[in-house]
């Protein structure tokens, strides 16, 4: 089974629409995984049935048992995150500030601090209106550990692909270069960048490429809204050549894309031309991935 991760560095480039379009043309050849758990949007286009759901527990938050607390203040002294304060003469933990390190529980002379695991979200295995299954998640508001939830979604999607003998895993990755995207990339066979020919698109591509290079992953690129700025599109292509990033395809600026999304469809479904385009991109990706060892 081969794992293909689609990332963009930043929102607004059309990453999710393009991933969903690829999912549409890949059809029964792939399992889709939405690893953009912070703002999971794939389900809006694929209409999953949330058939299987499980709570996700990860990380801990300190809780102080007021009955046992002798108000020595040691917990507050050692907390580097200023998560413990005195309210109405009681030591209290602010959950959003607590990093879950457990130092306070270690140091408490009365064992008054417990560190229960936190339910930080849910993850699901769904059938979709397309023929492919989707593994996806919902992260709780302000929850930590999105990287771990990303890993969970990916591992479950992998297990599903193996079980059903499906050859590809199509992953909608997280934005940025921090912990969720690092988690999205680990174990990938091929990375697809979705970028746009803007000053920020090029800048983000360069940053995220540096990250890929650290992972030594092969990568390809789709330039969305390519005709918006021909000069920048050229620069992106130069960058791609220089670093041996495969040129997958260009897509021109087209408000039909947003229209399709507004109506709940992928671009590959509204237009024969787009369907062909995405079929070709998918073919190219498969060819590269299967040739690589």
């Amino acid at each position: 089974m081969k794992e293909i991760v689609i990332i963009s560095g930043k929102g607004g480039t059309g990453k999710t629409s393009i991933t969903a379009s690829l999912a549409k043309v890949a059809n029964t050849e792939a399992v889709a995984a939405d690893c953009d758990v912070d703002a999971a949007d794939m389900h809006l286009l694929l209409q999953p049935d949330f058939a299987y759901s499980e709570d996700f527990y990860s990380g801990v938050i300190a809780q102080i048992d007021q009955e046992k607390c002798i108000k020595c203040g040691k917990c507050k002294d050692v907390c580097r995150f200023k998560a413990i304060s005195i309210i109405n003469k009681q030591y209290v933990v602010a959950p959003l500030d607590c990093e879950g390190c457990g130092y306070c529980a270690q140091i408490c002379p009365r064992d008054a601090i417990s560190t229960p695991h936190q339910n930080v979200g849910n993850w699901y295995i769904s059938s979709t209106r397309l023929d492919m299954p989707l593994v996806h998640a919902r992260l709780g508001i302000g929850a930590e550990n999105s990287g771990k939830l990303v890993a969970k979604v990916k591992n479950e999607a992998k297990a599903l692909a193996k079980e059903k003998n499906i050859p590809f895993l199509l992953v909608d990755g997280s934005p940025g270069i921090g912990c969720p995207v690092i988690s999205s990339l680990s174990g990938a066979d091929f990375v697809v960048f979705v970028t746009e020919p803007t000053v920020s698109g090029l800048h983000d591509l360069q940053r995220v490429y540096e990250l890929i290079a650290q992972f030594k992953l092969p990568a390809g690129c789709i330039i969305n809204k390519a005709d918006l700025n021909i000069e920048k599109t050229k620069l992106i292509k130069q960058f791609m050549q220089q670093y041996q990033i495969y040129e997958l395809d260009d897509i021109n600026y087209d408000e039909k894309f947003s229209e399709a999304v507004t109506n709940g469809y992928t671009a590959a479904e509204i237009d024969k031309e787009y369907e062909e385009k995405f079929k070709n991109i998918w073919k190219k990706i498969k060819k590269i991935v299967l040739e690589k060892k």
Partner: peptide
């Protein structure tokens, strides 16, 4: 600010 709803935004 950064995007999303998790720790960096908070």
């Amino acid at each position: 600010a950064p995007p999303g709803t998790s720790c960096p935004v908070i």
